[in-house]
Amino acid sequence: MTSFMPQKRYYRQRAHSNPMAHHEFNYPVCPEEMDWSELYPDFFTGSSSKNGTSQVEFADIGCGYGGLLVELSTLFPDKLILGMEIRVKVSDYVQDRIKSLRESEPGSYQNIACIRSNAMKYLPNFFSKGQVCMLLVACLMMIMMMMVVVFLFLTPDLKEQHKWRIISPTLLAEYAYTLRVGYVHTFICTTEIHSSWWNGAKYFYLNTHWYFLYMHLYRLCFLPTLVSMFPGRVGTRRRI
């Protein structure tokens, strides 16, 4: 029997989860021990030509209900894309959604998967150094840029900044570790941040070092590399 498209009303959950809590997670001890074939059966065990050699190159951290994940899947059918979501219900929704998408359209959506994990803690357990060429952190809107630009799309809260926010100055080092060298890493921010924390962060990692480029959304519009802008489909517009 074909599984039905999951209904979102059963998977609603408040938008916060404590990243410091010791939830039960399944994670590999090191990236070499990760079994990707369960997540991407077609790429690793199926008849695909790139059998077993492909690796995850796009990561969407805090993928939410997976709107961007699904969108990216058709845009980059030969790239493996991994969504990470910490909330139990939401990650389960994305998993069910991908499952039903794969069943309804056999052969497509084989390159996306979602796991429930705490990226702040376990990112290096999944990805080796320089493995990821596009890392999307807490994406709200969907913006696509040309492939030469690898970007972090950030939405730092205007609330008080704590260490346990997904974007903190010290955590950027871990994101940089997983990102591939040789690309321009852009650091984009949707909202004007006035807090002293943010200025501190900028000076800590952005202005003084060359890993990330600070870029404001409005300025981004003038960039020639901007290819297209997608309308947010799943729960993204509402929040803005």
């Binding site: 001890v29 090191c30 290096p124 150094k129 080092a173 570790y177 800590f204 070092h209």
Partner: peptide, 17 residues
């Protein structure tokens, strides 16, 4: 991490439980 640029992570040693 590199001492002079600590935002630059050289490696992770993973294996302990």
């Amino acid at each position: 991490s590199c001492l002079r640029s600590p935002y630059n992570i050289q490696s992770f040693c993973l294996g302990h439980k």
